[in-house]
Each structure stands twice: as C-alpha cells, then as structure tokens.
Design a protein around this nucleic acid. Structure first.
Lengths: 193, 193
DNA sequence: CTACAAACGCAAATAAATTTGCATTAAGGA
DNA sequence: TCCTTAATGCAAATTTATTTGCGTTTGTAG
C-alpha cells in the first residue's frame, strides 16, 4: 500500500544535501544562474532525482527560499511596542542582508501571485511575518498601549524594509528608529483617527 | 488605436513587433513560461536577431517590463504636491492591477540586484519611477512648497503600494489619500523630530 | 529476517535552447 | 543614384536541459 510520508530516512538526507547545495549556489551566483544540473552535481545526487521530485528549478528554489525565510527569529519583548518594533525591524533587515538573504527574498517575490495560482506560495511566505507583528501588537495592547493597526505596520515598517532590500539601500539603526516612531508617534501621545 | 506611429526604420519596426509579442506572451502565460524562441516565432523575426540584440530572455523581458510600467503612469501636474502624489499613487496602483501588470512587476523584482551584477539591472528597473518622483518633488519645490526627502516618498508611498500589490491587498482612493497625507502632513505635521 | 515499494542512480534518448557562419536586405549619407 | 554599414534571416552545428527505461538501493512494515 502507498505510504504517504517517510520521515528521517534516505529521502530526508538527500533533501538536506540538495537544499544545502541549492542555497550555496544561489548565494554565490544568484537565483537565475543556477540550473538543476548544477544543484545535482554539487549535492552529489542524480539530476534525475531532482526532476522527479521537484519538477523544475523554480519549484525547488521556491521551497528552499520559503524554508530559509521562514526560519523563526525570536521575537523581542522589551516592554514597549516602540522598542519592540525597532529591534524587530533591524532583525528582519539583518536576515535579508545575510548571505543569500536578498536572492531568496527575490525568489519568493518572483514566484508570488499569479492569478490562478492560488495564494499558497505567498501565504506561506509572508504568513509568519504577519503573525510576528500581530503578536507584538497584542502584547502591547495587553499592556494598555495604544497600538497602530496591523496593516499600518505592514505598510510603513515591513514595506520600507523590503523596498530598501530590493534597492540595496542601507537599513541602519536610525532608519529602524524612524520607522517605529512613525507608527508609535514621535514623542508620546499620538492621535491618529 | 491601430494608427500607432512607429518612427524609425526596420530596426524600430522589429523592436515594436518583438515587444508586442513579448508583452502578449507574458500576459498570457506568465513571465517564466516564455522563451526567446516563442517571442521570435510570434513576432515573426528570427530568434538569432533577438539573441544578438538582447542577449537573453531576461534582458529582453526586463526592457519590456520597464517600458510597460513607465508608460502606464503619466505624471500628474495638479498644482500641489499632495494632490500630485495622490493621483500618481493611484495610477501606479492601477498600472500594477492592469492585465499583465503584476507579471511585469515580478519581472522587475526578479531582475533586481545581484551582487556582482553591478546595479545596472536595478537602476534600469526602478530608475524611471525614481525619476518621476524627483520630478514631482522638484516642481513642488519650485512652487515654494516644503517637500519631503525623495527617500521618504520611496519608503512610505511606493513601498506600501508595491507591498500591497504583492499581497493582493486592495489599493483604494482612501489609501492613496492617506499615504500622500503622511508625506505632506495632514493637518497637523507628522514629520516632527 | 523477509518482502515490498518508494526513492535513487545511471546511461541512453530526446528535446530544447543557444551559437556560428554566411548570404541578404534595408537605412542613411555622399 | 550608389555605396557603406548595420541589422536581419536562414540553416547547420553545438551545447545544454529534460525525459525515459531499467536495474539497484534503502527504509519500513509485517
């Protein structure tokens, strides 16, 4: 009878080798310059296996990218939303700046929304980030702070960071600082609608 | 509409045919499913010519994407920066929502910076947009308005729009309104230290 | 321990993309 | 008009990616 999963065996080992090879190649040459053949050779597995398992390079790279970016970074819990956002912003930026970070990010973007694809890839990709933001906002609200809407954080904290990543523009402490301040109000009480 | 002037000689004509074919194919199948061969066949030109002129598919598609995305958003000149930004924001969003808009956007993202590429691809891709922003800001400054830094417009107007496009989140008038207000100051200044 | 089926490797076959060499055509200037 | 040059077309050659067929390995269930 057909088994659906085979955890922890040869399959898992080759998958690990393949992912490692793919990640290395992407970091070295960029996403567009790696072929199925290259990954296979580097990983020490037959290209045939890769084709059978993933179909084509994009599918494989997308899986790798999702895994890389979804890797959980610990959430800051400093006691104030403003400070949490500052720290978190810098961590996200650091993750994107890490070796291969930006290329993987681009892989995800390039494979995102095609009308008809369903939103699986996109949701898988951004879901964890949104969840993290929601958690920070919830904590702050529980403390009695007035918190900005989730969408505002996406628009004015996450979006600028992603944008600058694509531009290659620097993301320093001052910038993260400024982003958080815009959301929490510059000095103290802020009165949004 | 059929009365499109196509100045220039043979070169300009074939370029037009190629761009038209490429755009159509991208809109039909998505960026990843079009090959040099396909474009050549559809345009009625030899694939050899395409390779000689553009080198590879990505370069060609990137050029097409840039042209499409820039063409879709003519610059408003309403007399006030706030209003210009509002209109422009909606036009950019509309262009991204248009048939084929999102695929072309993804082409640009996928061709963004790769360490070693130099910044050619990136500059080519986003350059026109930045130029448009700079123009609006210059006009406003010439009128005597106080204008936000270019980078702020990128971070808090362009970035949210792109982000929402990737999410599939709606971009309405109210949203564009809000983005412009954040940059120009709504009623009370938001850009204090 | 044995049997089974999925996953794998290998080599050949196929298909597709990309390059190359050369003849031809068209545009712009003298 | 004629001449020069760059762009194009075409076919063959070459490389590279992808598929296919078949035997082998390796977990896992029984």
């Amino acid at each position: 009878m057909p088994r659906t999963t085979r955890p922890g065996g040869r399959t898992a080992r080759t998958k690990a080798a393949v992912f490692e090879a793919a990640a290395a190649l992407v970091a070295e040459r960029g996403p567009e310059a790696v072929a199925m053949t290259d990954i296979a050779r580097r990983a020490g597995v037959a290209a045939t296996s890769l084709y059978r398992r993933w179909g084509d390079v994009r599918a494989l790279l997308l899986e790798v990218a999702v895994e890389k970016l979804v890797a959980d970074s610990p959430l800051p819990d400093t006691g104030s939303l403003r400070s949490d956002l500052r720290v978190w912003a810098r961590r996200v930026a650091a993750g994107l700046r890490a070796p291969g970070g930006s290329p993987f990010f681009r892989i995800m973007l390039a494979n995102a929304p095609t009308p008809g694809d369903g939103d699986i890839g996109r949701a898988t990709a951004f879901g964890p980030r949104l969840q993290q933001i929601a958690t920070m906002l919830d904590r702050a609200a529980a403390r009695g702070e007035t918190v900005p809407p989730l969408m505002d954080v996406i628009d004015h904290l996450l979006a600028p960071i992603y944008m600058r990543t694509l531009f290659g523009a620097p993301i320093g402490a001052a910038f993260a600082h400024d982003l958080a301040d815009r959301l929490c109000g510059p000095a103290r009480g802020d009165s949004q609608i």
